[in-house]
Design a protein around this nucleic acid. Structure first.
Lengths: 95, 95
DNA sequence: CCAATAGTTCGACGCTTATCTAAACGTCGA
DNA sequence: TCGACGTTTAGATAAGCGTCGAACTATTGG
């Protein structure tokens, strides 16, 4: 499978990140999007949130490895990294 | 399947509870135990923790529906509720 | 009935973090 | 080049939460 490998610290970080409903909402929006990716502005439109707060959450998600971000001119494209989420769920499933 | 049904609030609560490594450790200990149950004192022995803190975490786990607790005389038996954990993972897996 | 033991509750302390406003930065179109 | 727009950073505030010690309750054994 060549699956994603998560350290204990990775899992802690992911768990902490998922503890915030707003971040889960963002992941859900990304997941519901055709390609699992979205412009930052589109996320801001869907969730009522200030740019600063959204930026903060996106950074957290990226630090946890749950999303990738890529700048395209002055726009940002956010991509969900499903394999990482899956790896985390597998990890918890072993309990 | 007749699986456990989780509301959005349930999921939020579970996610918040899982954000704390010590609580995940407790779940892991329970899961590794033959019957998925353990005495409170045994948990205290495995994890270095004061009674007050353990009591607090167990209550959080119980509130989230992840464990059941039952008093047996002056001892306490803690039981892992795997179906709830599973339901939460399924929920996240839909992302 | 008393002492010891298991677990709970309470209050306080300190750290983390979500959130906002305001200002800055970078990029693009006119 | 200038101004508008998307995103980031900094600073401040406030709320949440983990942790502990100490006092409390309840149960068991002597």
């Amino acid at each position: 499978m060549a699956s994603v490998k998560l350290t204990a610290k990775d899992c802690e970080r992911i768990a902490r990140v998922l503890a915030e409903p707003r971040r889960v909402d963002i992941l859900r929006d990304l997941g519901a999007s055709p390609k699992g990716e979205m412009a930052c502005a589109a996320l801001r439109a869907k969730n009522e949130i200030t740019p600063a707060t959204l930026s903060h959450h996106l950074k957290e998600l990226e630090n946890a490895g749950l999303v990738d971000t890529e700048m395209d001119g002055k726009f940002m494209r956010v991509t969900l990294k499903r394999p990482v989420l899956k790896a985390y769920l597998d990890h918890l499933g072993k309990i």
